[in-house]
């Protein structure tokens, strides 16, 4: 490298935006006149691009956050409380106080919540979020025949401004389950239905996963999961409309 030590510090500081404006102007004038110097500046910019594109993508494994919190919790009793505190803070950041939610902790439904939210996200990444495209519930309902061991409820909510987009099969816990897709403005709502192993009606519960809200309830035989990134109030009214329509069908 054929620049002085002083110039090397100067050009690094220049590349890093650490020179004051007057110094920077003087240095830029020199760059125009000294190709050796400008080649060094270019090399450092290329180095930055290489490092950012090649090293900047490293992310920890997805469960590191959970393991970190679990380790803290093992310090003493009250594990659920610590989880709840942590989770509520994280969610607080996501929701920015737009809604009131029950605090989270390790609940039995969490794995299912994770699976249905993942399926919803995956579906949105695909060219289309459904396996069968139809706004007609008379087309969608028979489409599930032979694909599932139960008959899912397909509610027609088009009159309420929630047209059916179609349906797909998701897999939760290695079992195929039915997912209906409704559109709500620019948002999609996935309504996933699966046999409810416990068979007892459960109260409505909310889960949050990565900025998505999942609302679950069951009518005894079937557990329902509504997932969307729509506002919580909107998803809640969808759930009420669906429940009403299902009860009347």
């Amino acid at each position: 490298m054929n620049v002085s030590e002083q110039d090397e510090l100067l050009l690094n500081a220049y590349v890093d935006g650490e020179l004051d404006p007057m110094e920077a102007v003087r240095f830029e004038q020199r760059l125009g006149a000294e190709p050796a110097l400008s080649a060094q500046v270019e090399a450092r910019r290329a180095l930055r691009n290489a490092l950012r594109s090649d090293l900047g993508e490293d992310v920890p494994s997805p469960d590191l956050r959970r393991r970190v919190m679990a380790k803290l919790s093992r310090r003493g009793p009250g594990e659920w409380l610590s989880w709840r505190m942590a989770a509520s803070f994280l969610i607080g950041a996501v929701l920015a106080g737009t809604m009131s939610v029950g605090l989270l902790n390790d609940r039995p439904g969490e794995n299912v919540a994770h699976a249905v939210v993942s399926a919803h996200i995956r579906a949105l990444m695909a060219p289309q979020p459904t396996d069968v495209v139809s706004s007609d519930h008379h087309t969608v309902k028979p489409w599930f025949n032979g694909k599932l061991a139960f008959a899912p409820t397909v509610a027609d909510l088009s009159a309420q401004g929630l047209p059916l987009v179609g349906a797909r099969i998701d897999v939760v816990g290695l079992e195929p389950v039915a997912s209906l897709v409704y559109s709500h403005g620019k948002h999609f709502i996935s309504l996933t239905e699966m046999p409810n192993a416990r068979g007892t009606p459960a109260s409505v519960e909310n889960y949050f996963e990565h900025g998505y809200l999942a609302i679950t309830w069951s009518d005894g035989g079937i557990a329902y999961w509504a997932v969307s990134d729509a506002a919580a109030g909107e998803l809640e009214s969808f759930v009420k409309l669906f429940q009403t329509a299902a009860a009347g069908s």
Binding site: R65, V68, M69, L72, R75, G76, G78, L81, S82, M85, A86, S88, F89, L90, A93
Partner: peptide, 14 residues
């Protein structure tokens, strides 16, 4: 302890 954990979640986890 609960306060500490909440603060930790707020400061460290992000």
């Amino acid at each position: 302890d609960a306060n500490d954990q909440a603060r930790f979640a707020e400061v460290f986890l992000p």
